[in-house]
């Protein structure tokens, strides 16, 4: 809507009209049925009373259910107990709420009332007085004449939180030794064992198409096994050696088509474990990074950038799978100093 239309296209005498419409004021009050019909009002009153009574019954129901239906030891009995107490509680509150709302809507005075607003801003006099008082206060401090106090005070106040923050930050991160990201408990000769049982794995037992979830031998005996498990967990997969394309620098890291890859996603660290034996794709269920196991666990889809680290493996004299060494790179998500 442009201005021209109001000014150009109209007969001259209409310029006398105001620019804007007038607010017509509050419409008149329309009485409700309960205002004019005593019968309707009585009915509403009865409904409110009944609803409040139902609410009270709900409370009694919840208490009765609490004492008579304990959870017991089966799924069904726990479900029943939860449900009955819940129904009692729900009845208590839904009926009380409905009663309260119905009462207010049908029986309480419904004449709309007007309250006037005042601007948020204080009046000029108040503002002037406030500003004057602050100025008086400032001059009482004498800060303008004694600048040294100001500097000293700011220094003291700025430093004060450090006495609290330094011990807090210093202690909260444990030993702050982030070099632990680089190592796992894998080492030369350590056996690969089943997760979670800890049973060692014979190479001959890993048939083509198998996917075996692996933890290092002795992991379960550690004081805090989960800390180590979150880095050391490995997925062992056997492919037909014809399907396996190994990089030249990684030859000898596999054993007769058996490869071992870190199960920690290089994206943000979820366990990557959805192995499709036909396509040799390994999918992460969290963000769908897809790794190609036949091709050095290279990323073929999704938000991860780097292949999964490979654990070099071989067999010991008894035919059990063992690690040749630790991983040759940090496992898991990227971090700033990863390559340093």
């Amino acid at each position: 809507m442009s201005d021209e239309s109001t000014e150009v296209g109209l007969p001259v005498e209409q310029h006398a009209l105001p620019q804007r419409f007038e607010n017509p004021g509050l419409p008149e009050h329309h009485p409700r049925l309960t205002d004019v019909d005593d019968g309707a009002a009585k009915r509403s009153e009865r409904i409110v009373v009944v609803l409040f009574m139902l609410s009270a019954l709900g409370t009694i129901g919840a208490i009765v259910a609490y004492f008579t239906v304990p959870p017991g030891a089966t799924i069904a009995s726990i479900r029943l107990s939860t449900m009955l107490i819940g129904f009692g509680l729900a009845a208590t509150f839904i009926f009380a709420g409905a009663a309260s709302v119905h009462w207010s809507k049908s029986l309480m005075n419904d004449h709309e009332k007007i309250e006037y607003r005042h601007p948020m801003v204080s009046d000029t006099e108040t503002r002037e007085q406030a500003s004057e008082m602050l100025a008086d206060g400032m001059s009482d401090t004498g800060l303008s004449r004694r600048g040294a106090i100001k500097g000293a005070m700011i220094t003291a106040v700025a430093l004060a939180p450090l006495g609290f923050a330094v011990p807090l930050i210093g202690s909260v991160g444990g030993d702050w030794d982030i070099s632990k990201f680089r190592h796992t408990m894998w080492k030369k000769g350590l056996r690969l064992t089943h997760d979670p049982t800890g049973r060692p794995i014979k190479a001959s037992d890993v048939t083509i198409g198998s996917a075996v979830h692996v933890i290092p031998e002795g992991l379960n005996k550690l004081e805090h096994p989960l800390d180590e498990k979150s880095k050391a967990m490995v997925l062992v997969i056997r492919l037909d050696p014809r399907d396996l394309h190994e990089a030249p620098d990684r030859e000898g890291w596999s054993y007769e088509g058996i490869v071992a890859y870190s199960k920690v996603c290089t994206h943000v660290g979820c366990p990557v474990a959805l192995y499709e034996q036909r396509t040799h794709h390994l999918l992460c269920p969290c963000h769908q990074s897809t790794f190609d196991i036949s091709n050095g666990a290279k990323v073929i889809f999704g938000p991860a950038d780097r292949p999964l680290p490979q654990l070099p493996i071989t067999v010991d004299t008894e035919g059990y799978l063992v690690a040749q060494s630790d991983f040759h790179e940090p496992v898991g998500p990227s971090f700033w100093e990863r390559l340093k």
């Binding site: 208590t92 839904i94 709420g97």
Partner: peptide, 13 residues
């Protein structure tokens, strides 16, 4: 009354 009613209904639901 309406506020109390709303609270009760939310609790109940």
């Amino acid at each position: 009354a309406k506020q109390a009613g709303m609270f009760f209904i939310i609790f109940g639901v």
